[in-house]
Amino acid sequence: MLTKRIIACLDVDGGRVVKGVRFENLRDAGDPAELAKAHSASGADEIVLLDISAAHERRATLLDTVRRAARQLFIPFTVGGGIRTLGDAAAVFSAGADKISINSAALADPTLIKRIAERFGSQAVVVAIDAKRSAETSRWEAFTHGGRAGTGRDAVMWACEAESRGAGEILLTSMDRDGTGIGFDCELTRAIADSVRIPVIASGGAGGAQHFVEVFREGHADAALAASIFHYGFSRLADLKQQLGSQGIPVRWPC
């Protein structure tokens, strides 16, 4: 049976992981390459590295970070943050990424999705959507630039357009839930997961194993991502997977 994926996310600024990880027995708890390897060893099904550097000069280290992380990583590896052109994407792929994630650049120029997909395949293109519930319409609006800029685009319709333009997966972050620990937005996740045929990765709000169970069962998510998974009271990712398995969620365990 196809399993539900648990994806570990590393937020990186200037080549250093900036939040959300507490590993024992690591020489350097802020090194993305070491953390990616440790997550993989503890049962992550996939690694996402997001470059959140605001300053341009701090982005320069990204390719080196990707190269070092990829060298010892043999599970799917997605890199996002600041990819604006086909050339940016190509450089990240040749550094060892398997997929790229694009958000603001895809909204600004949706043809970018198809151009990257034609060259590297749809499976390599993840479109990230940051969605926020609109008080007036009870729909969700897509935001860009780390959630600072509204687009007026309906998130569900944008997900459908991204699929038709060649996206291979949707990485969906609920801005209302992000960082709250009160659970994923299952309603938002289901609205998008039921509207597209490509996999939907839910993000934002995870606080415990039950939240993962809910987003898979009620949100129809194909995968769930967490940046600070080790703050949730699990000593190891393996413990989360065992709990999910015992509740009947198909997971890759033992791996």
Binding site: L2, T3, K4, P199, C255
Partner: peptide, 10 residues
């Protein structure tokens, strides 16, 4: 079934 088939399977 959803297509593509993406993820870890047994």
């Amino acid at each position: 079934v959803k297509s593509p088939h993406v993820g870890w399977n047994q």
